[in-house]
Design a binder for these strands. Structure first.
Length: 727
DNA sequence: CTAGGGTTAG
């Protein structure tokens, strides 16, 4: 199977240079400390000026060394002039050392011999305040300068506006703006950005339209703001207007335009913009190149992205973002093997592995279930010491969880000091996907206790935890709580969780009424959810209703078709079943073949039902036969009759006796030492008979077995499953 | 005589 071969190749590729046996190899010298530990803590995670693309940045105080050198030179001078103070303070501001800048300012005020701060100094101070993100210091500085009667020019006023905007006080920024006598283009741009940051798209558009001073930045701001607020069509419209108005593009324009093109999947527009980049001779600009590559990646044109990367990597310049753009691109396109291959190429070329790229590599391992490679990525993270950020921690937690090791996921989670919403949500999802609803809710409570406000994604996770564990009362409670306490308006996803919650628990009337009462019957997903619940509880009437609705919405996919025809079949309505199958055939809807795979020692082994392709097939089947005998002695009765017509099960699987997951497990047992846990992956939902059998196998062979199917995990141990048979 | 300050993004 091609997929298996690709996976195996990827596994083999990553392993040798990363394996812990050769700690002195070049690939294992990521010099992470220098690059990551020296990072300034006050700056926004990705916005530290020293990391900006080479083509557009200004010189500034860089990193710890630069700051200390400057500070030493400053301390050595006897006459500390205003420009000297300005240099120190604004240097801190630009270098992300906001607290240091504030300390320098305090020092200046306390030093009797120092000159009185002027507009230049204060602009730097206000930028530090903005960087700290807390209004209080900013407000005090603002008040102080008003009382002292510091001459207020446009630039200083703009610094005040910006400070309020960055501290989240958009209204205050707006009021200060309208109070200004002389507004320049920058003033308009700051308020424009404040409006957009506060989510006031309409206000921003109005402001933009009435502005007398529109420059390239104004256009960039409104377009990117529209994109960020989900108004992609409107943004495209503005981009066209910008072209018509003859406004010059700069690298920000291109970056925004490319993300717009990828968001709308407008490859044609992307190519057109690419042409403009060439004409404008911006091809060598790191920033522009990355967004160009990102556009091609998101449009699925990996080869185009790669050719840009290869052409451009000849230039010196700042390449590290380019590597992660490519790796992330491969992951987005489901090409995990190539993502890892590319990562290895980066290490070979001596580029250190940083958080940004490790996050994507971890995601690749998570998606493909490559636990061994994932552990190696974790090794890189360990090298960062405690300097890894929450997004990277989330990726590692997610990786362990999706690779079947909830314990490792928890261990990683516990180690992170500064947990953010996304990390809490990742952990919550992990418990939910293992069917541990109670633990998931405990995470939610702990998160609340630590005063972290959950977002809409967190609540999807909470509700799905409830539905997967049959916690109906709790689900009701949190659905109400999310609206009343957190002011979250339920989205289709939230509604769907509720349908699932009632449906899975067998409350089919409640589920159906819920759909009708909440006006969500135009959403195909809720009917699919109801349909699966009907299959679970064998409710023919509502199954028919759901499939009719799906038909009306023209949303019948392979799963729904197979599910419905199987329901007819189990009710002996063979004619209906046959009719549905043939209609499915006519509409060219095909069922995905089921397959399972297992990772052993950096190789991946994939099996389909009745697979004979493995060299040890004879041995595998012999063991499997023996094992099944043993299971029967232990009291296992085949439930194959229940699942003859199971949804995601292949026609021939039954005839071939063994589903692919059983074969993968048998192979795992005979290929690994006694007592070693097994992790199996399946591309579809696995069947009730296999679920039952694996419970027995875990006891008979005394193994922990983790099965990841399309939707969730089952952790089998000593004859029972973590889902407690509710799934 | 000179220096030194503010906006947009992934």
């Amino acid at each position: 199977m091609a997929r298996a071969a690709r996976k195996a190749a990827a596994a083999a590729l990553l392993s040798p240079p990363l394996s812990s046996s050769s700690p002195s190899s070049a690939a294992l010298q990521p010099r992470a400390g220098r690059y990551l530990l020296g990072r300034n803590t006050g700056a926004a995670s990705s916005g530290a000026p020293q990391e900006r693309a080479s083509g557009c940045g200004q010189p500034c105080l860089v990193g710890a060394r630069g700051f200390h050198d400057a500070r030493r030179a400053f301390d050595g001078t006897s006459t500390r002039s205003l420009p000297a103070w300005t240099a120190i303070i604004s240097g801190c501001a630009r270098g992300g050392r906001h607290a240091d800048g504030m300390r320098a300012f305090a020092e200046m005020l306390g030093d009797g011999g120092a000159p009185a701060p002027n507009a230049f100094v204060l602009a730097g101070v206000l930028r530090c305040c903005a960087g700290l993100g807390d209004v209080e210091p900013g407000r005090r500085v603002h008040g102080w300068m008003l009382r002292r009667g510091v001459r207020q020019d446009v630039v200083l006023c703009n610094a005040v506006l910006d400070m309020y905007a960055k501290c989240g006080h958009h209204d205050r920024a707006r009021r200060a703006f309208w109070a200004m006598a002389d507004k320049d283009a920058v003033s308009w741009n700051i308020v424009l950005s404040a409006c957009l940051q506060g989510g006031d798209v309409l206000g921003a558009v109005r402001l933009f339209d009435e502005s007398p001073l529109r420059d390239t930045t104004s256009w960039n701001t409104i377009i990117s703001g529209l994109v960020r607020n989900g108004c992609a069509a409107e943004a495209l419209d503005r981009l066209r207007q910008m072209v018509r108005a003859g406004v010059v593009f700069n690298h920000y324009t291109y970056s925004t335009a490319f993300s717009l093109a990828s968001m709308l999947s407008l490859l044609g527009l992307g190519r057109q913009l690419h042409g403009r980049v060439v004409m404008a001779a911006l091809e060598d600009d790191a920033f522009v190149c990355c967004s160009l590559m990102d556009m091609y990646c998101k449009c699925g044109e990996m080869e185009a992205a790669l050719s840009i990367f290869d052409r451009w990597s000849w230039f010196t310049g700042d390449v590290k973002f380019a590597w992660s753009t490519m790796v992330a691109g491969y992951v987005q396109n489901g090409r995990e093997e190539e993502a890892l291959e590319f990562f290895r190429r980066m290490l070979r070329e001596g580029v250190p592995a940083e958080q940004f790229i490790l996050t994507s590599v971890a995601a690749a391992c998570a998606n493909a279930g490559m636990v061994e490679q994932g552990r190696q990525v974790h090794g890189f993270v360990e090298k960062l010491g405690h300097a890894f950020d929450a997004p990277l921690a989330s990726a590692i937690v997610d990786m362990y969880s999706k690779c079947g090791s909830l314990e490792d996921a928890c261990r990683m989670f516990d180690r992170v000091q500064a947990k953010n919403v996304a990390l809490w949500t990742t952990m919550l999802c992990s418990y939910a996907s293992y069917g541990q609803g109670r633990m998931a809710l405990e995470i939610f409570n702990r998160m609340n206790a630590e005063k972290i406000t959950p977002n809409e994604i967190t609540l999807v996770a909470v509700l799905s935890a409830c539905s997967h564990s049959g916690l109906v009362g709790e689900g009701d409670h949190y659905f109400k709580l999310m609206q009343e306490e957190y002011g979250i308006v339920p989205s289709t996803e939230h509604y769907n969780c509720m349908v699932d919650l009632y449906g899975r628990a067998g409350l089919l009337d409640k589920a159906k009424n819920f759909i009708e009462e909440n006006n969500i019957s135009h959403e195909a997903i809720v009917w699919k959810t109801l349909l699966s619940a009907c299959r679970l509880h064998k409710h023919m009437e509502y199954a028919k209703l759901a499939s009719e609705k799906l038909g009306q919405l023209e949303q019948c996919d392979d799963g729904s078709y197979v599910l419905m025809s199987n329901m007819y079949a189990t009710n002996n309505k063979w004619l209906d079943s046959f009719k549905l199958r043939s209609s499915m055939w006519k509409r060219k809807v095909r069922k995905q073949p089921g397959q399972s795979w297992i990772h052993l020692k950096n190789a991946v082994y994939t099996f389909v039902a009745g697979d004979m392709s493995h060299p040890r097939s004879t041995e595998i089947y012999a063991y499997l036969e023996k094992l099944m005998e043993r299971l029967k002695e232990m009291g296992y009765t085949s439930r194959i009759d229940l699942v003859v017509h199971d949804v995601e099960e292949e026609q021939r699987e039954t005839a071939l006796k063994f589903h692919s997951e059983k074969i993968a497990i048998a192979f795992g047992i005979i290929s690994t030492p006694v007592g070693m846990p097994l992790r199996i992956f399946k591309n579809l939902r696995f069947c009730e008979d296999c679920h039952e059998a694996i419970k027995f196998i875990s006891r008979a062979a005394d193994r922990e077995i983790v099965v990841r199917d399309l939707y969730r995990f089952h952790h089998f141990k000593s004859g029972s499953c973590s889902c407690e048979d509710f799934w």
